[in-house]
Nucleic acid binder design. Structure first.
Lengths: 372, 372
DNA sequence: TTCGAATCTGACAACGTTATCTGATCAGCC
DNA sequence: GGCTGATCAGATAACGTTGTCAGATTCGAA
């Protein structure tokens, strides 16, 4: 076959040969990607006109526009993202920056962002950032090598001042997910963590609990402090006191929740309920309870925060706060795409609603006050 | 400020104005990305020489090479990936294709691939593919819009014939993770699912179980069949029979595991152990057991497959098979990067070792035969 | 020295797209 | 019918890099 083609070239002369060679390739359906010029010659217009049509620019007659569109569809043309990125500076890539992949919301967050990106013809480059290292430097490397149009920052990077500074300096659009502070300083998406923790604590109090333990989240995450504040406000409002021994530091991991659970539950004055600042730690508390022979919810009520998948498949299922991480990141991607098109945002600080999910891990405390 | 600049341009003449404007920008340290030409002028060589140095090409004097390297480092130069992709066809992007983001291995897999990519200066574009839709078309869209250098296919896409066909047609390198068949037909990474299931079943038999239920995996996943085959071989080898009622269809989800668990355990002749083809279903079985008032491992032993994070944080912890998904994908990324450099692979079909993780969810059956 | 070969360096084209400018067409108006 | 402005289309130049080829330099040997 290659022989056949070269013979044709030898027979015909000069550019005519090239032309015919070219159309042969197209006829054969060679897997070369069609370019904008292929579309142009098929539609019998200049390639610039094709570009105009494809980018929705004005000043193209309806008839020509339709001819171009038909040609593009027939050739199954798709623009070369590299060439676009080279000229326009827009890469149509959005970065998804996260720190610890074990944070359970990461998968859900990623999916939300992914869906929205795909709808808009964007793609997602997932990039881990080690928040113990030099965050600004890592971010600068990622940005400058991929020329990202924008980045989504997940906790705890969303509260890293260096990260925000470098993004501002580079002029890269960014949306923060669930930042603790500075919600007026640039686009972000969040739920009201304080109010959510308040509501969940009210739920526990409403069940009849008065001695409630709290497992604090990772101190680097802004949400940790907000959740604790909500818990404390609900307790104070109900006239309940929180003993210092019932506030235990955790780090958003299962293991930290487990040791916190041991500390809280393996003591003479143990609480009748424990509220952990995320689901993983709540499951850790549950494991500790099981280890100590306490069954939930009969002897100990346990509540978490986030409503991750793990909360739904534990036994008993975990009472928790639903944080719509996927929708939050979908909104974040949306905002970035809007910004990339140089349009203004309706609302740069978007607050989404949470929901209390009361499940099997919480119940009224045992009628008899526990004596240990 | 814009006014100021235009005034300068108006005062000076033509290209000279442009030049001075340019150097002003550099002096100010504007955040424009340095290009290869900036490096060239700083090192006082042509930009082509810089390109040569940066790509490790020969024919550059050591002294010049060092000068260029120093200039590049001083300017913190990083090449524009779009321009590179445009000319070379190489995008330095690797696609990570998966179907259902709920498959628990996805996160782990992604991290493995990510780590290796970053080391090699590559990036990862994560792309979901709906395997109920037109898989080849979706893949073609992703490839042609991003010009990926290669793709990693996770189950069940790794067994989709259409996916492989389109990748071959487009000439895009691909590595399959855990394919069922065709391990000689192109690069892939896998563990011996059959042997692993065999070993885990032996473990259960070794504990004293003789009536063992099995929850089958999603029929579209090749691994499902291999795992079942391993289970059946171990049973047959031990002279044990498997009742049809003890083989239940599942779909790799928690819910399917739960209903399978109900079917298996809520019957007069229930097995003393259940082996589910993945961890999620095993946790579903565990939830069903709890629902029925059966405690694991005292009254029912439960085992899974994959050793996902959820297996480690359940109570009791799940006995399972460790499949090193992260390392598998790391290897896959490695293979793709090797292929992108036009080098040959040492071993296109890479088999990695598995490990049995015996944990709290399995134990010897109750001494007295269970009477229900 | 002088020549040839090896080594090094640079000018220029190319990749596929968008942006800018300039030219062509056409309708409406005097 | 000629002028004006609006609308449309195309030619050409970027974007930042790598590939090609030709020119310059160096070095060793005659």
């Amino acid at each position: 076959m290659a022989e056949d083609v070269s013979r044709r070239q030898a027979l015909a002369g000069g550019s005519e040969a090239r032309e015919s060679f070219h159309s042969v390739r197209l006829e054969i359906g060679l897997s070369r990607q069609p370019t904008i010029k292929d579309v142009a010659s098929k539609a019998e217009v200049s390639f610039k006109t094709v570009s105009r049509v494809l980018n929705g620019e004005p000043h193209v007659r309806k008839e020509v526009r339709e001819r171009v569109l038909a040609a593009a569809a027939a050739l199954d043309y798709r623009p070369n993202i590299a060439a676009r990125g080279l000229i326009g500076g827009r890469s149509r890539l959005i970065g998804f920056l996260y720190d610890n992949p074990n944070y359970s919301y990461v998968t859900e967050a990623e999916i939300g962002a992914l869906l929205r990106c795909r709808e808009a013809g964007y793609h997602l480059a997932v990039e881990p950032v080690d928040s113990r290292g030099d965050v600004p430097r890592q971010i600068e490397q990622i940005i400058s090598s991929l020329r990202l149009d924008g980045v989504i920052l997940t906790p705890p990077i969303s509260d890293d001042p260096g990260a925000l500074a470098v993004l501002d300096r580079l002029g890269v659009a960014h949306v923060r997910i669930a930042p603790e502070a500075g919600r007026d300083k640039g686009p972000c998406v969040f739920i009201d963590d304080e109010a959510a923790a308040f509501a969940l604590t009210r739920h526990l109090i409403g069940l009849g609990h008065s001695t409630i333990g709290f497992v604090q989240g990772h101190p680097d995450h802004g949400a940790s402090h907000l959740r604790q504040a909500g818990f404390e406000r609900a307790m104070a409002q109900a006239g309940l006191t929180t003993r210092p021994a019932h506030m235990v530091q955790g780090y958003f991991t299962f293991e930290s929740g487990m040791s916190a659970g041991r500390a809280l539950l393996d003591a003479p004055d143990r609480p009748t309920a424990v509220f952990a600042a995320n689901d993983k730690m709540a499951l850790g508390v549950m494991a500790a309870a099981r280890e100590l022979g306490l069954s939930a919810p009969e002897q100990i009520s346990i509540a978490g925060f986030d409503d991750t998948r793990a909360a739904q498949i534990s036994s008993p299922q975990l009472t928790t706060v639903r944080q719509p991480v996927d929708i939050m990141c979908q909104a974040a991607a949306d905002m970035l795409i809007t910004l990339a098109a140089n349009e203004a945002l309706d609302d740069p600080a978007l607050q989404l609603p949470f929901e209390i999910r009361a499940r099997g891990s919480t119940a009224a405390p045992a009628a008899e006050p526990q004596s240990v």
